[in-house]
Amino acid sequence: MPCGRENYSKKKNFIHNLDARVKLITCMLSIVLLVNIYSAKVLTVAVAVILFSLLAARVSLKTIVGRAAITLFFIGGILLFLPFTHGKTTWVISLAGIALPVSLEGLVLAGTLALRTLSAILLMVFLTETTTRAELLSAIKQLPVPPVFSQLIDFTWRYFMVIKSELQRMQRAQKARGYVMKAYFNLQTLKIVSQTIGAMFMRSYSRAERVHWAMLSRAYGARDWTYKMHNNRARIEDYVWGISFLAIVLILLMWDKGGSQWIQLLK
């Protein structure tokens, strides 16, 4: 999952400008609520609402499809099996002489699961595509989570970047000396890849050590981080947006839980 944009390439708009903490909490709460929706109809409306928000934030359709596809790919396997393994057999289709029992129940379940996953993924895309990584990280740090947690996120990110750049540098040096990977699976490739991985770990280790020394040098560990530095207030429009968005999700949830009867009652 991408952790926020590098920076804003296009002009910022209202949604980009929203307070990152409000956005983070709203998206997280929405996901928790959305996974409790069972009706395919309601889920379709939810997906439509999120898609609309994404397009309103000027996230390109290409980005949305690309990001969603990668993640859906991983759960695709489970979804594909469901119609054949879950519930009572409704039809039997024969493929190349093999009889496959298909269940309507399984098919519906797979569809609902797919929609539910899609809505959660789209919300994550919404969050990460309209917030920079720096904003997102500092939003997490400002929430009432233990400092260890936010430091962990910082360090994970930091060391991920360290390892990535070590690997890039090594690959560049290998290319500069004329190395081209000819095939994925042969002895030479295997040898070079394993040596690269080994060297990468050693280099990352010694760099991590130096990073740690540099932190100790700046009195790291002398004290607990007892307070948070940034406390800029969220604005009214941030709250209005967050509450409205959650309200829509809540209405969808109520609709799913038979709330349509309440709406009837109100009439």
Partner: peptide, 19 residues
């Protein structure tokens, strides 16, 4: 790169004083 590790410059410069 061994030393500057925070997600932004301000946070990084504040690291020592906060500690």
């Amino acid at each position: 790169d061994d030393q500057v590790f925070s997600s932004n410059v301000w946070d990084d410069v504040a690291f020592g004083p906060i500690n």
